[in-house]
Amino acid sequence: MSERIPVLRIGDVLLVSIQTDLEDQSVLDLQEDLAERIVETGAQGVVIDITALEIVDSFVGRMLATTAAISRILDAETVLVGMRPAVAITLVELGLSLGGVRTALSLERGLAMLGRAGGVGAGRA
């Protein structure tokens, strides 16, 4: 049995905060859950917060890229927030640059970014 990561809804945005080192099945479950919830809620945006993650390998990296691609097809924008410097340096060396994924320094900035893009919420001055 793998644990499921909670997907929170804040207005038009779905928020996922990955708090622990996930085993591969949980990663796949999360990808699936997110797609379902986007359709179910009609969400315009998805924020994935990885501030707590100490590594991102190619398996998690692929999930992030795939989720961004899926949500785009479902008319939602994905923003990845909080990647640590060491994780970013390692991911680049691994050979993944997540070209199609939007990123932000913090959760706050990520939410603001979606606000600007989709007309949801206040946006940034």
Binding site: E54, I55, D57, S58, F59, A86, I89, T90, E93
Partner: peptide, 10 residues
């Protein structure tokens, strides 16, 4: 550390 752990994961 991060590089090694990531390699080990792969």
């Amino acid at each position: 550390q991060t590089k090694l752990v990531t390699a080990a994961s792969e």
